[in-house]
Nucleic acid binder design. Structure first.
Lengths: 208, 208
DNA sequence: TGTACATCAGTGAACGCGCGTTCACTGATGTAC
DNA sequence: TGTACATCAGTGAACGCGCGTTCACTGATGTAC
């Protein structure tokens, strides 16, 4: 990806990325054409290829940007200060619910990136790095509350807890658009996932 | 999909499906061409289009066949008789490990079908139906061992347990080819997943 | 049992559409003197 | 401050490749009498 030299082309680059993101969000599909993107961005194919070597590069750049935003969001959401005085059950519950809302809001992007991860493993790698980053943030919260956790390995526990939450919610969002499994609504899944994670970490759940 | 009228064309149909499955397994990619498939099957494009209205139909048929095989495998694996005398901790452990091996062995197919599910929601629906079927089978094992389970709703517990296992293992297989998260090898993930599911169901895990 | 005919099955060259990419050109911005 | 020149940025028609799909034809199988 060729870096822009003037503010003007920087704007164009952002318009292209934004247009691609909007189209993907709407269509929830991996099938985007360059003409569609430049049309929506009010740009042109030539301008496109002045920035990106090919179409894939745009999607990779968009994915990198999205993962960056997601990590930034996670950093804010998992800031230790935000959770002062909250017990771990509360933290887990809120974090799972927050993640679920994110998956819902960004369903189109999520579906498209999962599709690309299946075809191009560099998307899968970026996704893995994001997960590792989030797990580290979560671990900080666990360490502060280590007396509430019976799991002996906080590093491992954080990684597995985040893996479970992200896998169930992301994969569920992709696989359950359209047909929802009977007896397993989104809301029930979330509640049970919260319960499962708290039990896994060894926290006594709030009621029951 | 036009049903074959002679044994000859039935053979051709199966050769086409097998060829597609082999190619997908090898390339672990959604990008298959019709010429590749018929070349590998020792058939021809005309024969292909005599059976299938278009390329998508072949992949849908292949997916249906794979899901059917997977459900049949699950039926055998979760047969109550097979597990007579085994406690639930043993069942969970073996089932998770068995599922993990399946995901590993059929990684190519899994990746391709996840990719298709992202583009075509009918793949996602078939996948959801398979999950529901497996959950029902697992529920039978839970019901037999209901005294070992503290979770109050066996139907829900089975659905969520299966959702967790399949999500973590399938999504993990797709996202972790190439880059494995540090501190979270495949083997550790499996062990922790077994632990998490047993805790979720309310079984006391074997040691600890 | 043999011949004629109908239908099923298979072949692969040719077609054509769609989409990614190129490129010759115009316009905008920055810089030197 | 103004003019000349260089580079950056943007335009969109045209190209061409790849791949899905069609179709006119050949071969195989089944059926009627």
């Amino acid at each position: 990806v060729k870096p822009p030299q003037q503010a003007r082309s920087q704007k164009t680059l952002e318009r292209l990325l934004d247009a691609a993101e909007e189209l993907i969000s709407q269509k929830a599909s991996t099938a985007l054409t360059v003409s569609e993107i430049v049309g929506r961005a009010g740009s042109s194919v030539g301008a496109f290829y002045a920035r990106f070597p090919d179409k894939e590069a745009l999607l990779a750049t968009l994915h990198t940007r999205s993962c960056g935003e997601a990590l930034a969001t996670a950093e804010v959401a998992l800031e230790p200060q935000r959770w002062q005085g909250a017990n771990l059950a509360r933290v887990v519950s809120d974090v799972v619910r927050f993640t679920a809302r994110m998956c819902e809001d960004r369903l189109g992007l999520l579906v498209a990136f999962v599709g690309h991860a299946a075809m191009d493993s560099s998307f899968a790698e970026r996704r893995t790095r994001l997960e590792v980053g989030i797990a580290e943030l979560f671990q900080r919260l666990l360490v502060i509350r280590r007396h509430e956790v019976t799991h002996p390995d906080l590093d491992l526990a954080a990684a597995v807890a985040i893996r479970m939450v992200l896998s169930v919610l992301e994969y569920g969002a992709v696989m359950n658009r359209g047909l929802e499994a009977p007896n397993l609504t989104a809301e029930r899944t979330i509640a049970e996932l919260v319960f499962a994670v708290t039990r896994y970490l060894g926290v006594e759940p709030r009621q029951k």
